[in-house]
């Protein structure tokens, strides 16, 4: 039996690589210095879906919600093996918290057609909330298997999954369709394939066409480029709130029950502190002091 898989992914700032250099003098984050990347555990989710397709057949569809730039992760998904990618992008989605986001994703998943398995990364590295997966599952009325590490069996409408926690493992059996959130220990995501990078070299959304015109001046208008891409099956579809039939009241800021009261930039306190020379003598003096003060 073939299984149609939907993978929900997110483009995130690479928060793992924040250092002194990505902070401005006023303590705020220099966003420009942070590259945007494919959320790492979403790559594990994509890999798990691709392996299901390889073993059982079916189609892998990758969906993301974000600004026009998020098409970057969709191209990457194509290079790594996705059959179909869709960008959900609309100003009406702006300011969505996890609840509004999961509502939009639920509407989009329903619009993609028949599906058997929905995969997400366990959590995204920018918010670390791990909420969107379970909330999408709830809205779709699906059972959820969070912290999924491996699919041990998949047959008919039954799936056996091993879950991995910091302190243990659990094996569960569930009915299909269901939603899985995948942990980083699940697999090693395959790299983008050179062949597919060539095949999808031009892949772009119509939102990107005006900017692409600058690279390809041979096209006189964005529409001409758009047509060219469509004829070559290189157009990444963009769905708006209207396309997915979403109730606008449940999207963006109006649809988000959480509100940000304030953001405090972290002001680091310099309490009494001392520079210790990075020399054998410096280290030795420090250790002696710690011993004398009964700290060690």
């Amino acid at each position: 039996m073939a299984y149609n898989c939907i993978v929900l992914v997110k483009q995130v700032p690479d928060t793992a690589n924040i250092s002194g250099k990505t902070m401005k003098d006023d303590g705020t984050v220099n966003r420009a210095a942070l590259p945007a990347i494919f959320n790492p555990e979403d790559l594990n989710a994509l890999e798990m879906a691709l392996r299901v397709r390889e073993q059982h057949g079916g189609q892998v569809t990758v969906l993301t919600m974000g600004p026009p730039r998020a098409a970057e992760v969709l191209r990457e998904a194509l290079y790594r093996g996705a059959d179909r990618v869709i960008l959900l992008s609309d100003r009406k989605f702006a300011g969505s918290d996890t609840l509004a986001t999961s509502y939009a994703l639920k509407c989009a998943v329903e619009r993609t057609g028949d599906y058997d398995l929905v995969f997400c990364g366990r959590q995204a590295i920018d918010g670390d909330t791990a909420q969107v997966g379970p909330q999408v599952a709830e809205k779709l009325g699906l059972p959820q298997i969070t912290y999924a590490e491996s699919i041990q069996a998949l047959q008919g409408s039954e799936i056996v999954v091993q879950r991995a926690f910091p302190l243990g493992k659990e094996t569960v059996k569930c009915t299909v369709p269901c939603l899985l959130t995948v942990v980083s220990s699940a697999n090693r995501p395959r790299p983008p394939s050179a062949r597919r990078m060539i095949a999808y070299k031009l892949a772009a959304t119509s939102l990107e066409c005006p900017a692409l015109l600058k690279q390809w001046p041979e096209f006189e208008t964005a529409e001409a480029l758009d047509r060219y891409l469509a004829e070559r099956d290189q157009k990444i579809p963009v769905w708006t709130a209207a396309d997915i039939g979403a109730d606008e009241e449940k999207l963006g800021l109006p649809g988000s029950p959480t509100k940000v009261l304030k953001i405090d930039y972290v002001v680091l306190e310099t309490s009494e502190s001392r520079q210790v020379p990075a020399t054998p003598e410096g280290a030795s003096g420090l250790v002696r002091e710690l011993i004398q003060d009964h700290i060690v």
């Binding site: 918290d97 996890t98 609840l99 999961s102 918010g127 670390d128 909330t129 791990a130 909420q131 969107v132 997966g133 379970p134 909330q135 599952a137 709830e138 809205k139 959820q144 969070t146 912290y147 926690f165 910091p166 988000s256 029950p257 959480t258 509100k259």
Partner: peptide, 22 residues
């Protein structure tokens, strides 16, 4: 915990309430 993080969003979604993690 793995249990709280599995359960809380399910409840929040069902009753359409806001949830803040960690």
């Amino acid at each position: 915990t793995p249990i709280g993080r599995d359960l809380a969003p399910r409840i929040a979604s069902a009753v359409r309430a806001g949830l803040t993690a960690d």
